[in-house]
Design a protein around this nucleic acid. Structure first.
Lengths: 159, 159
DNA sequence: CTTGACCTTACCACCATGGTAAACCCTAAC
DNA sequence: GTTAGGGTTTACCATGGTGGTAAGGTCAAG
Protein backbone atom coordinates (compact mmCIF):
# COMPACT_ATOMS: atom_id res chain seq x y z
CA UNK A 1 0.00 0.00 0.00
CA UNK A 2 2.42 2.57 1.20
CA UNK A 3 5.44 0.75 -0.12
CA UNK A 4 5.39 2.93 -3.20
CA UNK A 5 5.63 5.95 -0.98
CA UNK A 6 8.72 4.52 0.65
CA UNK A 7 10.42 4.39 -2.68
CA UNK A 8 10.26 8.13 -2.91
CA UNK A 9 12.43 8.29 0.12
CA UNK A 10 15.90 9.10 1.02
CA UNK A 11 13.77 10.90 3.61
CA UNK A 12 12.91 9.33 6.94
CA UNK A 13 9.41 8.00 7.20
CA UNK A 14 8.83 4.40 6.23
CA UNK A 15 7.02 1.28 7.27
CA UNK A 16 8.45 -0.89 9.99
CA UNK A 17 8.76 -3.82 7.61
CA UNK A 18 10.85 -1.70 5.26
CA UNK A 19 13.10 -0.74 8.10
CA UNK A 20 13.63 -4.38 8.96
CA UNK A 21 14.34 -5.16 5.30
CA UNK A 22 17.05 -2.53 5.38
CA UNK A 23 18.66 -4.03 8.45
CA UNK A 24 17.38 -1.27 10.72
CA UNK A 25 16.06 -1.86 14.18
CA UNK A 26 13.17 -0.97 16.43
CA UNK A 27 13.89 0.17 19.95
CA UNK A 28 13.09 -3.28 21.34
CA UNK A 29 15.57 -4.90 19.00
CA UNK A 30 18.13 -2.26 19.86
CA UNK A 31 17.56 -3.11 23.49
CA UNK A 32 18.15 -6.81 22.88
CA UNK A 33 21.23 -6.11 20.80
CA UNK A 34 22.82 -3.87 23.41
CA UNK A 35 21.69 -5.24 26.74
CA UNK A 36 20.01 -1.95 27.56
CA UNK A 37 16.31 -1.48 28.20
CA UNK A 38 14.11 0.43 25.78
CA UNK A 39 13.45 2.75 28.66
CA UNK A 40 17.08 3.63 29.08
CA UNK A 41 17.62 3.99 25.35
CA UNK A 42 14.92 6.65 25.32
CA UNK A 43 16.51 8.21 28.37
CA UNK A 44 19.90 8.42 26.67
CA UNK A 45 18.17 10.05 23.75
CA UNK A 46 16.69 12.64 26.08
CA UNK A 47 20.24 13.34 27.24
CA UNK A 48 21.22 13.99 23.65
CA UNK A 49 23.50 10.97 23.42
CA UNK A 50 21.81 8.76 20.81
CA UNK A 51 19.16 10.26 18.58
CA UNK A 52 17.89 7.95 15.86
CA UNK A 53 17.75 9.95 12.65
CA UNK A 54 14.61 8.28 11.35
CA UNK A 55 11.13 7.40 12.51
CA UNK A 56 8.58 5.21 10.75
CA UNK A 57 5.26 6.64 9.59
CA UNK A 58 3.88 5.40 12.85
CA UNK A 59 6.53 7.40 14.69
CA UNK A 60 8.55 4.37 15.78
CA UNK A 61 12.23 5.02 16.35
CA UNK A 62 14.48 3.42 13.72
CA UNK A 63 18.02 2.56 14.73
CA UNK A 64 20.91 2.07 12.34
CA UNK A 65 23.94 -0.12 12.91
CA UNK A 66 25.90 2.97 13.84
CA UNK A 67 23.34 3.75 16.57
CA UNK A 68 23.62 0.22 17.90
CA UNK A 69 27.37 0.64 18.14
CA UNK A 70 26.97 3.87 20.04
CA UNK A 71 24.48 2.29 22.41
CA UNK A 72 26.91 -0.53 23.05
CA UNK A 73 29.60 2.03 23.71
CA UNK A 74 27.38 3.67 26.29
CA UNK A 75 26.57 0.32 27.87
CA UNK A 76 30.23 -0.61 28.19
CA UNK A 77 31.14 2.75 29.63
CA UNK A 78 28.32 2.46 32.16
CA UNK A 79 29.60 -0.99 33.04
CA UNK A 80 32.92 0.67 33.81
CA UNK A 81 31.11 3.06 36.12
CA UNK A 82 31.45 6.25 34.10
CA UNK A 83 28.77 8.85 34.72
CA UNK A 84 26.53 9.97 31.89
CA UNK A 85 28.39 13.27 31.73
CA UNK A 86 31.68 11.47 31.39
CA UNK A 87 30.17 9.17 28.81
CA UNK A 88 28.96 12.12 26.76
CA UNK A 89 32.56 13.33 26.60
CA UNK A 90 33.95 9.87 25.93
CA UNK A 91 31.49 9.36 23.10
CA UNK A 92 32.40 12.65 21.50
CA UNK A 93 36.08 11.76 21.79
CA UNK A 94 35.36 8.36 20.33
CA UNK A 95 33.76 9.97 17.31
CA UNK A 96 36.47 12.59 16.97
CA UNK A 97 39.26 11.24 14.79
CA UNK A 98 41.45 14.16 15.84
CA UNK A 99 41.26 13.29 19.54
CA UNK A 100 44.39 12.73 21.56
CA UNK A 101 44.58 9.59 23.64
CA UNK A 102 45.81 11.82 26.45
CA UNK A 103 42.34 13.33 26.76
CA UNK A 104 40.77 9.94 27.10
CA UNK A 105 43.34 8.73 29.56
CA UNK A 106 42.92 11.85 31.67
CA UNK A 107 39.19 11.21 31.91
CA UNK A 108 39.84 7.60 32.83
CA UNK A 109 42.28 8.57 35.55
CA UNK A 110 39.84 11.05 37.00
CA UNK A 111 37.22 8.34 37.12
CA UNK A 112 39.64 5.90 38.69
CA UNK A 113 40.34 8.41 41.40
CA UNK A 114 36.65 8.96 42.03
CA UNK A 115 36.24 5.23 42.40
CA UNK A 116 39.22 5.09 44.73
CA UNK A 117 37.61 7.69 46.93
CA UNK A 118 34.32 5.85 47.05
CA UNK A 119 36.09 2.58 47.75
CA UNK A 120 38.10 4.15 50.52
CA UNK A 121 35.05 5.71 52.11
CA UNK A 122 33.17 2.43 51.95
CA UNK A 123 36.10 0.53 53.40
CA UNK A 124 36.33 2.95 56.30
CA UNK A 125 32.66 2.55 57.09
CA UNK A 126 32.93 -1.17 56.66
CA UNK A 127 35.84 -1.43 59.03
CA UNK A 128 34.23 0.73 61.68
CA UNK A 129 31.03 -1.25 61.55
CA UNK A 130 32.64 -4.67 61.46
CA UNK A 131 34.78 -3.74 64.45
CA UNK A 132 31.59 -2.92 66.31
CA UNK A 133 29.85 -6.05 65.10
CA UNK A 134 32.82 -8.10 66.28
CA UNK A 135 32.30 -6.77 69.77
CA UNK A 136 28.58 -7.49 69.78
CA UNK A 137 27.72 -10.85 71.27
CA UNK A 138 24.60 -11.00 69.13
CA UNK A 139 22.37 -12.96 71.44
CA UNK A 140 19.02 -12.34 73.09
CA UNK A 141 20.39 -9.80 75.55
CA UNK A 142 19.66 -6.15 74.84
CA UNK A 143 23.04 -4.59 75.50
CA UNK A 144 24.81 -3.94 72.27
CA UNK A 145 28.10 -2.18 71.51
CA UNK A 146 26.84 -1.29 68.05
CA UNK A 147 23.95 0.75 69.33
CA UNK A 148 26.10 2.16 72.10
CA UNK A 149 28.62 3.39 69.59
CA UNK A 150 26.05 4.88 67.27
CA UNK A 151 24.30 6.61 70.14
CA UNK A 152 27.33 7.80 72.02
CA UNK A 153 29.93 8.71 69.46
CA UNK A 154 29.13 12.31 70.20
CA UNK A 155 27.36 12.03 73.50
CA UNK A 156 29.79 14.14 75.47
CA UNK A 157 27.73 17.31 75.11
CA UNK A 158 24.27 16.00 75.80
CA UNK A 159 23.01 19.56 75.78
CA UNK B 1 3.10 39.96 77.98
CA UNK B 2 2.39 36.42 77.10
CA UNK B 3 4.56 35.02 79.85
CA UNK B 4 1.48 34.63 82.00
CA UNK B 5 -0.04 32.57 79.27
CA UNK B 6 2.98 30.32 79.26
CA UNK B 7 2.42 29.59 82.89
CA UNK B 8 -0.85 27.99 82.03
CA UNK B 9 1.07 25.46 80.09
CA UNK B 10 2.11 21.95 80.32
CA UNK B 11 0.83 22.34 76.76
CA UNK B 12 3.12 23.06 73.88
CA UNK B 13 3.03 26.65 72.69
CA UNK B 14 5.51 29.09 74.17
CA UNK B 15 7.87 31.87 73.27
CA UNK B 16 11.25 31.11 71.84
CA UNK B 17 12.99 32.81 74.78
CA UNK B 18 11.09 30.57 77.19
CA UNK B 19 12.19 27.55 75.24
CA UNK B 20 15.80 28.65 75.51
CA UNK B 21 15.38 29.25 79.22
CA UNK B 22 14.21 25.66 79.54
CA UNK B 23 17.23 24.32 77.71
CA UNK B 24 15.27 23.58 74.58
CA UNK B 25 16.57 24.20 71.09
CA UNK B 26 15.54 25.71 67.81
CA UNK B 27 16.17 23.79 64.63
CA UNK B 28 19.28 25.83 63.87
CA UNK B 29 20.73 25.03 67.26
CA UNK B 30 19.82 21.40 66.83
CA UNK B 31 21.68 21.48 63.55
CA UNK B 32 24.79 22.92 65.16
CA UNK B 33 24.60 20.44 68.01
CA UNK B 34 24.30 17.43 65.73
CA UNK B 35 26.27 18.30 62.63
CA UNK B 36 23.15 17.95 60.50
CA UNK B 37 21.57 20.71 58.46
CA UNK B 38 18.21 22.17 59.39
CA UNK B 39 17.05 20.96 56.04
CA UNK B 40 17.89 17.36 56.78
CA UNK B 41 16.39 17.57 60.26
CA UNK B 42 13.08 18.57 58.67
CA UNK B 43 13.53 15.79 56.16
CA UNK B 44 14.01 13.19 58.88
CA UNK B 45 10.87 14.54 60.50
CA UNK B 46 9.00 14.01 57.25
CA UNK B 47 10.21 10.42 57.34
CA UNK B 48 8.70 10.08 60.79
CA UNK B 49 12.05 9.66 62.53
CA UNK B 50 12.28 12.74 64.76
CA UNK B 51 9.16 14.73 65.47
CA UNK B 52 9.57 17.54 67.98
CA UNK B 53 6.65 17.42 70.35
CA UNK B 54 6.37 21.18 70.77
CA UNK B 55 6.20 24.29 68.67
CA UNK B 56 6.42 27.90 69.81
CA UNK B 57 3.52 30.28 69.31
CA UNK B 58 5.26 31.30 66.13
CA UNK B 59 5.25 27.67 65.01
CA UNK B 60 8.99 27.19 65.45
CA UNK B 61 10.08 23.64 66.13
CA UNK B 62 11.31 23.08 69.70
CA UNK B 63 13.78 20.27 70.30
CA UNK B 64 14.42 18.61 73.61
CA UNK B 65 17.63 16.97 74.71
CA UNK B 66 16.13 13.62 73.86
CA UNK B 67 15.51 14.80 70.31
CA UNK B 68 19.09 15.98 70.00
CA UNK B 69 20.28 12.55 71.08
CA UNK B 70 18.11 10.91 68.47
CA UNK B 71 19.36 13.26 65.77
CA UNK B 72 22.92 12.43 66.74
CA UNK B 73 22.07 8.76 66.56
CA UNK B 74 20.80 9.28 63.03
CA UNK B 75 23.88 11.25 62.09
CA UNK B 76 26.22 8.55 63.36
CA UNK B 77 24.28 5.82 61.61
CA UNK B 78 24.38 7.79 58.35
CA UNK B 79 28.11 8.20 58.83
CA UNK B 80 28.31 4.43 58.98
CA UNK B 81 26.46 4.26 55.68
CA UNK B 82 23.16 2.89 56.90
CA UNK B 83 20.14 3.74 54.75
CA UNK B 84 17.26 5.69 56.20
CA UNK B 85 15.17 2.54 56.27
CA UNK B 86 17.83 0.72 58.20
CA UNK B 87 18.20 3.68 60.51
CA UNK B 88 14.49 3.70 61.22
CA UNK B 89 14.81 0.12 62.39
CA UNK B 90 18.00 0.77 64.32
CA UNK B 91 16.41 3.73 66.08
CA UNK B 92 13.40 1.70 67.08
CA UNK B 93 15.68 -1.04 68.39
CA UNK B 94 17.72 1.56 70.25
CA UNK B 95 14.60 2.78 71.97
CA UNK B 96 13.33 -0.72 72.66
CA UNK B 97 14.73 -1.92 75.93
CA UNK B 98 13.50 -5.42 75.14
CA UNK B 99 15.55 -5.68 71.95
CA UNK B 100 18.02 -8.47 71.42
CA UNK B 101 21.50 -7.54 70.36
CA UNK B 102 21.18 -10.29 67.76
CA UNK B 103 18.68 -8.18 65.85
CA UNK B 104 21.04 -5.26 65.75
CA UNK B 105 23.99 -7.39 64.78
CA UNK B 106 22.01 -9.01 62.00
CA UNK B 107 21.18 -5.61 60.56
CA UNK B 108 24.81 -4.59 60.82
CA UNK B 109 25.99 -7.72 59.06
CA UNK B 110 23.51 -7.19 56.27
CA UNK B 111 24.80 -3.69 55.81
CA UNK B 112 28.39 -4.87 55.88
CA UNK B 113 27.59 -7.32 53.14
CA UNK B 114 25.94 -4.62 51.07
CA UNK B 115 29.05 -2.51 51.44
CA UNK B 116 31.22 -5.48 50.52
CA UNK B 117 29.26 -5.92 47.33
CA UNK B 118 29.57 -2.28 46.42
CA UNK B 119 33.27 -2.32 47.22
CA UNK B 120 33.79 -5.42 45.14
CA UNK B 121 31.91 -4.00 42.20
CA UNK B 122 33.85 -0.76 42.37
CA UNK B 123 37.12 -2.63 42.62
CA UNK B 124 36.29 -4.70 39.58
CA UNK B 125 35.48 -1.61 37.56
CA UNK B 126 38.57 0.10 38.88
CA UNK B 127 40.80 -2.76 37.92
CA UNK B 128 39.36 -3.10 34.44
CA UNK B 129 39.73 0.59 33.79
CA UNK B 130 43.19 0.93 35.24
CA UNK B 131 44.37 -2.01 33.16
CA UNK B 132 43.11 -0.19 30.10
CA UNK B 133 44.64 3.09 31.21
CA UNK B 134 47.95 1.33 31.72
CA UNK B 135 47.91 0.29 28.11
CA UNK B 136 47.05 3.76 26.82
CA UNK B 137 50.11 5.77 25.88
CA UNK B 138 48.23 8.98 26.67
CA UNK B 139 49.86 11.27 24.16
CA UNK B 140 48.66 13.39 21.28
CA UNK B 141 47.94 10.41 19.03
CA UNK B 142 44.31 9.41 18.61
CA UNK B 143 44.55 5.66 18.95
CA UNK B 144 43.50 4.60 22.38
CA UNK B 145 43.03 1.16 23.93
CA UNK B 146 40.51 2.59 26.38
CA UNK B 147 38.13 3.74 23.67
CA UNK B 148 38.80 0.57 21.69
CA UNK B 149 37.82 -1.56 24.63
CA UNK B 150 34.69 0.43 25.42
CA UNK B 151 33.63 0.37 21.80
CA UNK B 152 34.51 -3.20 20.97
CA UNK B 153 33.84 -5.21 24.08
CA UNK B 154 30.75 -6.46 22.34
CA UNK B 155 31.48 -5.62 18.73
CA UNK B 156 31.39 -9.18 17.45
CA UNK B 157 27.79 -8.93 16.28
CA UNK B 158 27.78 -5.54 14.68
CA UNK B 159 24.30 -6.22 13.40
C1' DC C 1 -11.57 -8.67 13.28
C1' DT C 2 -9.50 -9.85 17.40
C1' DT C 3 -5.68 -10.63 20.23
C1' DG C 4 -1.31 -9.92 22.06
C1' DA C 5 3.01 -7.89 21.62
C1' DC C 6 5.12 -3.82 20.65
C1' DC C 7 5.61 1.25 20.41
C1' DT C 8 4.52 6.19 21.82
C1' DT C 9 4.37 10.01 25.36
C1' DA C 10 3.75 11.62 29.95
C1' DC C 11 3.79 11.06 34.28
C1' DC C 12 5.40 9.30 39.35
C1' DA C 13 8.84 6.88 42.37
C1' DC C 14 13.19 5.93 44.47
C1' DC C 15 17.25 8.06 47.89
C1' DA C 16 19.58 11.65 50.29
C1' DT C 17 20.66 16.01 49.66
C1' DG C 18 20.87 20.84 47.95
C1' DG C 19 18.68 24.89 46.45
C1' DT C 20 15.20 28.72 46.06
C1' DA C 21 11.40 31.80 47.12
C1' DA C 22 7.97 34.17 49.80
C1' DA C 23 6.37 34.86 53.94
C1' DC C 24 6.82 35.34 58.75
C1' DC C 25 9.41 35.91 63.33
C1' DC C 26 12.86 37.52 66.54
C1' DT C 27 16.53 40.40 68.38
C1' DA C 28 19.59 44.14 68.57
C1' DA C 29 20.86 48.59 67.40
C1' DC C 30 19.56 53.04 66.28
C1' DG D 1 9.46 52.57 67.55
C1' DT D 2 11.48 51.36 63.52
C1' DT D 3 14.61 49.07 60.90
C1' DA D 4 18.07 45.65 59.48
C1' DG D 5 19.84 41.05 59.54
C1' DG D 6 19.29 36.63 60.44
C1' DG D 7 16.42 32.63 61.71
C1' DT D 8 12.24 29.95 60.62
C1' DT D 9 8.18 28.32 58.08
C1' DT D 10 6.21 25.88 53.96
C1' DA D 11 6.29 24.64 49.25
C1' DC D 12 8.40 23.85 45.43
C1' DC D 13 12.41 22.06 41.90
C1' DA D 14 16.93 19.59 40.98
C1' DT D 15 20.27 16.03 41.06
C1' DG D 16 21.37 10.68 38.65
C1' DG D 17 20.19 6.52 36.91
C1' DT D 18 16.74 3.48 36.86
C1' DG D 19 12.12 1.46 37.46
C1' DG D 20 7.20 1.58 37.05
C1' DT D 21 2.53 2.76 35.22
C1' DA D 22 -1.14 4.47 32.35
C1' DA D 23 -3.47 5.56 28.14
C1' DG D 24 -3.29 5.37 23.57
C1' DG D 25 -1.51 4.03 18.75
C1' DT D 26 0.48 0.14 15.66
C1' DC D 27 1.63 -4.17 13.87
C1' DA D 28 1.43 -9.12 12.81
C1' DA D 29 -0.59 -13.55 13.22
C1' DG D 30 -4.63 -16.21 13.76
Amino acid sequence: MKSEMNNRASKPAMELADAHAKGLHSIGEAAKLTGLTAKMIRHYESLGLVTPTDRTYANYRVYQTRDIHLLRFIKSARDLGFSMKQIAILASLWQDSARSSAEVKKLALVHIQEMDERIHSLQQMRKALSDLAGRCHGDERPDCPILDAIACNSCHNPD
